[in-house]
Design a binder for these strands. Structure first.
Lengths: 239, 239
DNA sequence: CTACTCATGTAACACGTTACATGATTTC
DNA sequence: GAAATCATGTAACGTGTTACATGAGTAG
């Protein structure tokens, strides 16, 4: 759970009302982490009960009273502990669209293209939004917060590239039907893959990466001369 | 909910036991969609109760009986309806690590670097896995399934690039403290951004994209001569 | 002798969304 | 006069994880 910790993080810079926290999530953090009312208010209550935050109620005659929350020593400790803990889990992308792509074999080329174009439209729109908000924030936020904005833009760009490549693929007729999607062979291969993940000894390729990393070289750089390169997956991305 | 639909999708190609479905999720689909036992078995039961799938129990003396499920007409209808429905929602990335990055201002440079390096290690390892499984599957899966593998690799590559840029940034001392992370200004800007998202009229930039798209040009291509380009966000990605 | 595979499940919990409720004030 | 803003919340539901239970067979 990271909602509690992010609330604590906000309160580190000074007291805030529940409504202000809600607004901040809705209008700023929402780019990468959303919270609903039905989750936020009960969570604040629970955190108060656990002495992570203290509460001061400000009377308002016209409307509901304001609840001003401040971080407690206990809360600050918990936040700092969380912030320093290394993240050791790779977060999988769980996207309904990708699940549909898995089954695209079962659709006609026209239907697939319709799907891909509508995704492209959606992403183009989102990219536009991400770019304008990034521009508006320029100079007002920390360098790290700026990098989060960059990640958003970059991610959407890459997705569009990916979708475009699928469109190309269909147009060029590179799709042949393969029969059943499920084969025992696939499961077997997956098992091998799993073993490698959970065995603690890293593979050779991983060790090469590590050496590069430690020598200070850019880890993802491709050293082949531009002209000789196989078309890179991320070619042609613009800023 | 997409778990039910993906189960139906698997059963389209023939009957499977609960255990086989579980294995398939665990060893193949898990790359982009995971399911726990505690979710799968009850879901199969519910789907059977709703007549989406039919059940045949195969007696086994030595151990628990096998439950062989087949898709029903109703189930097939529901799957096909789902598969054809356009995806209109942009799935936000909800990642604990990004949330931490938001608060990196509150850590020392050394602590930030430690975080970033451990993330890089993790991603290098995952990249390795993604690449090997992609290679193993080559020739055995549909072109679309192959593209899912490519997306995974591409995504991890981009993340590593992003993390490397943050490391660079810290080393070059491009990080200045900005005081409070929360400002009313940010909320105001966010509100404007929101309006643009929900107003149905697309912006000029979005329309430019759309024109490019409809004229068949690659939408994300950057036409500036290579030498004059500002270093692109995704420069140096390898296959 | 330990641990894993096959094969199914349950119960408790954690996380998150949606819809609703209140009620005055301000803006279109 | 309708709708949004300010300001708080509850109840019902849906999704998903973790830990546990059973019990035989097999591989190291």
């Amino acid at each position: 759970m990271a909602l509690r910790e992010s609330i604590l993080g906000l309160l580190c810079d000074g007291p805030m009302t529940g409504y202000e926290i809600k607004q901040f999530f809705r209008n700023v953090i929402r780019n990468f982490w959303s919270v609903s009312d039905g989750q936020l208010y009960p969570t604040l209550k629970k955190m108060h009960a656990e002495d992570l935050i203290s509460l001061r109620v400000v009377r308002q005659d016209s409307t509901a009273n304001k609840h001003v929350y401040s971080i407690s020593e206990k809360g600050r400790g918990q936040f700092e502990k969380w912030l320093r803990e290394p993240v050791t889990k790779f977060e999988e992308l769980k996207e309904p669209f990708v699940l549909k792509v898995f089954f695209f074999d079962k659709l006609s080329h026209e239907e697939v293209i319709r799907h891909l174009r509508s995704q492209l439209d959606l992403h183009a729109r989102i990219l536009d939004e991400f770019r304008s908000i990034r521009d508006s924030y320029k100079g007002r936020i920390t360098a790290f917060q700026g990098m989060i904005g960059d990640m958003g833009v970059l991610y959407v760009e890459v997705r569009m590239l990916w979708i475009n490549r699928m469109i190309d693929m269909v147009h060029k007729g590179l799709i042949e039907k393969k029969g059943a999607l499920y084969t025992e062979e696939m499961v077997e291969i997956g098992k091998k893959f799993l073993e490698e993940i959970f065995s603690e000894k890293p593979s050779q390729e991983f060790q090469k990466w590590l050496r590069k990393l430690q020598s200070g070289l850019p880890v993802v750089a491709d050293k082949r001369p531009r002209s000789k390169q196989v078309r890179s997956m991320a070619d042609g991305l613009s800023r």
